[in-house]
Design a protein around this nucleic acid. Structure first.
Length: 278
DNA sequence: CTTACGGCCTGTACGC
DNA sequence: TGCGTACAGGCCGTAA
């Protein structure tokens, strides 16, 4: 579920609570998520000031004043909850795996029932060389993600375009939902072979990817009050998808109305309009 | 080299 | 009502 827009919304939500603040107490409540917590996790965080909260693809990056950066991936079910200092801040829920108390009295709790998430620490100066980030493709909302860059990457792949866009080396941050949405907006069939995407389709696709991500980020921001929901949960929001999870419902393109089709590609659901996408 | 697929993990939705 | 099963999906290790 958390793809680039959700992670970006989480980033905007936790940044005001963390940036410039010192972590005075850190709690690590189990040994591992998808991978073990790094050696000395608590000791390397406690007493450190968070200098910046950033994002690369679906990773959150918390740069510390120690020269290390905490990398956080939300996996499928990871979330942060902000609990204000004082009242009720001490109650932990099931699957609360890590807790960060700041000098300002805020408590940030990381909850992840399915534990597909991960946390790791890396040297800030060599962040791009870490195992997690080194093979990632361009940020889709950056200038370097241009039509010709996308076209070149797609030309080398002999998989359906759906699978190519899920490959984080082609473009970083898309997941199952926004791949379906982007292909719909671009009018490209998810079954089309990646290498048959020419310059014109690649240009439409790059635009569609940027547009769908921007719309989703805007929706995330607009549904949050100061980026924090009533229960303190960050980053999850209702968003109107045009095809995702709409099997059998009419295509929204004016004059179309064909039922949205669901197929399975490499074990994942894909949703598309067989009339509008070629 | 590239591509395909199973497994990790738990909550939820559904059928009987 | 309760039980069992399928499914959700980001990512990685392994297999082909």
């Amino acid at each position: 579920m958390p793809e680039l827009p959700e992670v970006e919304t989480v980033r905007r939500g936790i940044a005001p609570v963390l940036e410039g603040r010192r972590l005075i107490r850190v709690l690590q409540r189990r040994a591992d998520l998808r991978v073990p917590f790094p050696q000395g996790f608590v000791a390397r965080l406690e007493g450190r000031r968070v200098e910046a909260v950033g994002r690369r693809a679906k990773y959150l990056t918390l740069a510390l004043d120690s020269g290390e950066t905490l990398l956080v991936h939300l996996g499928m079910s990871g979330s942060f909850v902000i609990k204000p200092g004082g009242a009720g801040g001490n109650v932990l829920e099931p699957h609360d795996h890590a807790v960060f108390d700041t000098e300002a009295g805020d408590r940030l709790v990381f909850n992840d029932p399915r534990r597909f998430g991960l946390m790791t620490l890396a040297e800030t100066a060599r962040l791009d060389q870490t195992a997690e980030l080194k093979d990632l493709g361009p940020e889709p909302l950056s200038e370097e993600f241009a039509a010709d860059v996308l076209a070149a990457a797609l030309a080398r792949r002999h998989t359906p375009i759906k699978a190519a866009l899920l490959d984080q080396r082609v473009v970083a941050g898309l997941g199952n939902i926004y791949v379906s949405e982007a292909l719909y907006r671009a009018g490209i069939s998810p079954r089309r072979s990646s290498h048959t995407i020419g310059a014109a389709r690649a240009a439409r696709l790059a635009d569609a990817i940027k547009a769908v991500l921007k719309d989703a980020i805007a929706a995330g921001g607009s549904t949050l009050n100061d980026y924090v929901q009533a229960d303190g949960t960050l980053g999850y929001f209702q968003h109107a998808f045009r095809v995702y999870d709409r099997e059998g419902k009419p295509c929204a393109t004016p004059g179309c109305g064909r039922p949205v089709r669901r197929i399975v590609q490499s074990g994942r659901s894909t949703f598309y309009c067989p009339a509008c996408q070629r």
